[in-house]
Every structure is written in C-alpha cells, then in structure tokens.
Design a protein around this nucleic acid. Structure first.
Length: 223
DNA sequence: TATATGATTGCCT
DNA sequence: GGCAATCATATAG
C-alpha cells in the first residue's frame, strides 16, 4: 500500500482518470484508523473543457491563459489535492493532473469500501441503510472518509495538500481491463456535456446513481 | 456591481 | 419522482 508517485499524475488527465479505476484511495485518519476504498468511478476536467472551473476567465477568447481565482489551483503540481464545496455542504475530492503549470484534475466520484467500513458508516447519516450508499457518490465518499468540512467552512484542510504521501493518498490496486471500463458523459453538468470524460467500472454496484448529462438532456427534450 | 447557478444529497410526496 | 438547502463563485451587464 505505497502511494502512487507524482509521475503517475503528471500525465494527460483522461489517462490518469482511466488508470485510477481499480486503484485505492487511502486515508490514515488520526481518529478513525486507516480507511481504504477501491476507486470505481472518475471524471476528468481539462483546459479544453467548458465545465472546468472558471473556464471562460481562465482560457479567454484571445487564447491567453490566466490562472486566477479558483481555477489557479488546477495548475498546481501533479498529485496535489483540489478539494471544493458544492451546494453549500458537499465536499468533492479531486487530484491535480498534467505537468505543473498545465491545468487538469480528476474527480473521484465513487469507491467501494475495502477497509475501515465501520468508521465510514459512522461518518454517514444513520438513515443510510444500503451498503452501497456509503460511498457511491463524490460527496458521500468524502463524508464517509471524514475528509469533509462543516458547511460554514470555506476551504478544506486537504485542499492543496500532497496526495502522493500520507495521510491521504492513492495506491495501486487490482487493474481494470479495457473491456470492463465504460466511458460516458459526465454527471450533473450543464456545459461540456458532449465530452465523454467519465470512466466507470461497468456494472459495479458502487458506481454513483446519477445519469450522464447527455442522456439526461436527451430525455428532457423528449429524445 | 448585480444576478444566476452549481462536478450533490437526502428528505418529501 | 420532485425539490429544498444556502452562499461562493463565475459571468453578465
């Protein structure tokens, strides 16, 4: 269980997203002991991508790149944590990709509990009954691992930290062969929904229940 | 400066 | 299946 090195993340974002399937997410919690989850769903976010944070301001019409605001942290060293809050209360874990100075990140969307499952359950609401609901979503897994923050916090204590060393890191797991990898549009987006940047272990029970954005659009427009 | 909306979840009917 | 929570950030004006 040794951390994946910086060189693993210093590659094209979609390659990293795909290769993280099957890898372990490890958190050596000072309070809850070691927690391990097998990654079964990821999404890539890149510089060519309207769904990227601050995309318009960062990659302006004149083609000049302006790392500023929230997006500036996507240019950090490969293997750096990019953690942010959506909908007021939910914290999402990303790992920065590409060589330093280039923007990119992979969102960890779902894991299967491998170790420390009791601690994960204790971190989730008591109303959670089905086992898969412990970690089958990007906000759920940060909560299960206890790497979330209270709603009033603006930034995460893990944001900007090095994910190639303990306490929070990723480790090599059982590789997933190409015929078991499914590639789809990403979930919950209104922009960049025609880009197939989502990678899942096909049919895995811990994949998040959301519907890919292009499928959702087709359904809503009567398609 | 002003407004719109979210890389989601959980509770409601 | 529908929808509220609840404000920082991005984008429009």
């Amino acid at each position: 269980m040794s951390p994946l090195p910086s060189s693993f993340f210093a590659r094209p974002t979609l390659q990293v997203a795909r290769d993280l399937l099957g890898a372990y997410l490890v958190y050596e919690s000072p309070d809850d002991g070691r927690m391990v989850g097998r990654i079964v769903e990821t999404e890539g976010y890149r510089a060519d991508d309207p769904a990227m944070h601050g995309w318009k301001a960062t990659f302006g019409d004149d083609g000049r790149v302006r790392p500023e605001g929230r997006a500036a942290d996507l240019f950090a060293a490969p293997g750096t944590a990019y953690v942010y809050k959506v909908y007021y209360t939910h914290w999402l874990l990303n790992v920065v990709t590409e060589p330093e100075g280039e923007a990119g990140a992979v969102l960890i969307r779902a894991v299967e509990p491998v170790e420390g499952e009791e601690a994960m359950a204790a971190n989730r609401p008591a109303s959670v009954r089905r086992r898969r609901d412990l970690t089958n979503g990007p906000g759920k897994l940060t909560q299960a691992f206890g790497i979330n923050e209270p709603p009033e916090a603006t930034t995460s204590r893990f944001h900007g930290t090095d994910l190639t060393a303990p306490p929070l890191y990723m480790a090599e797991g059982g590789p997933v062969s190409d015929d078991r990898v499914e590639i789809t549009s990403r979930i919950g987006l209104s922009r960049g929904i025609d880009l197939d940047y989502r990678f899942v272990v096909a049919g895995h029970p811990f994949v998040s229940p959301g519907e890919p954005s292009d499928v959702r659009r087709a359904r809503k427009t009567g398609g």
